[in-house]
């Protein structure tokens, strides 16, 4: 079986600025992977390349063996780092939009999660708080039976209790064959749910290890190691 994500010497350049350079990386199935790095280290660039929103300057990228495009969008569930739904849309309209759009979308699962969080389907997205809107988007993304989930900062704007719920949502809904790639700054909050972490620094991959390898080798948490590697 092909790896769910494969990058070889992947490079994205803007003029003379390298947003990503020479990134070589393989993600296996059935893992939850943290994509970590300071601001401007290339996390969102990589995520946009995976989703076909950017075109590489150089190198190779494949999702389940295919170049990002129509076919890969069927199997990749993507949570962007900003609002992607109009404020005028009601929550239940967003659900039916996703139902129409993605054949792997489970309307039932989405409704169950919205109920659990007591989010009223008749509300317009513009009327929701920032945190609630983020929850709605995450519910939509996690209600798909995708093979790769790409979550760009899924817990940035929500309170700690909701963060726990979101992590549980991720743990409950991903199946053992699927891979979840999560970018975040809030490492200590999600460290325990990760298999692997990737550290990006100035567009380069500087670390690719399991959480327990890091703890065994350095005797410290990923969060503490991150603070050391990226000390300002």
């Amino acid at each position: 079986m092909k790896p769910i994500l494969e990058c070889r010497r992947l490079t994205k350049r803007y003029g003379s600025f390298f947003a990503l350079s020479d990134l070589t990386l393989t993600l296996e199935r059935g893992q939850i992977v943290g994509l970590l790095g300071p601001n401007g280290s290339g996390k969102t660039t990589l995520i946009k390349l995976i989703n076909g929103l950017l075109v590489p300057t150089d190198g190779y990228i494949a999702v389940d063996g295919c170049a990002p495009g129509v076919e890969t969008k069927k199997i990749v569930s993507y949570l962007p780092d900003q609002d992607c739904l109009g404020d005028q849309m009601r929550v239940r309209e967003a659900v039916s939009l996703y139902t129409d759009f993605y054949s792997d979308f489970s309307t039932e699962r989405a409704k169950k999660m919205l109920d659990a969080l007591e989010i009223d389907g008749s509300l317009r997205l513009g009327a929701l708080s920032k945190g609630t809107k983020e929850k709605v988007q995450l519910i939509l993304v996690m209600s798909r039976d995708a093979r790769l989930y790409v979550l760009d900062e899924p817990i940035g704007g929500v309170d700690p209790a909701a963060r726990d719920y979101i992590l549980r949502t991720i743990l409950t809904n991903y199946n053992e064959e699927a891979t979840v790639l999560i970018s975040t700054h809030l490492i200590s909050d999600i460290e325990n749910v990760l298999d692997h972490v990737l550290f990006l620094k100035e567009g380069r991959l500087v670390m690719n290890e399991t959480v327990d390898e890091i703890r065994t080798r350095y005797g410290k948490s990923v969060d503490a190691l991150f603070r050391e590697v990226f000390r300002c």
Binding site: D164, R168, L171, T172, N192, V193, D195, V211, D212
Partner: peptide
Amino acid sequence: LALDAAVNPNTMQK
């Protein structure tokens, strides 16, 4: 168990 502990299922498996 992984859900209860809020940890990665592969880690619990190990």
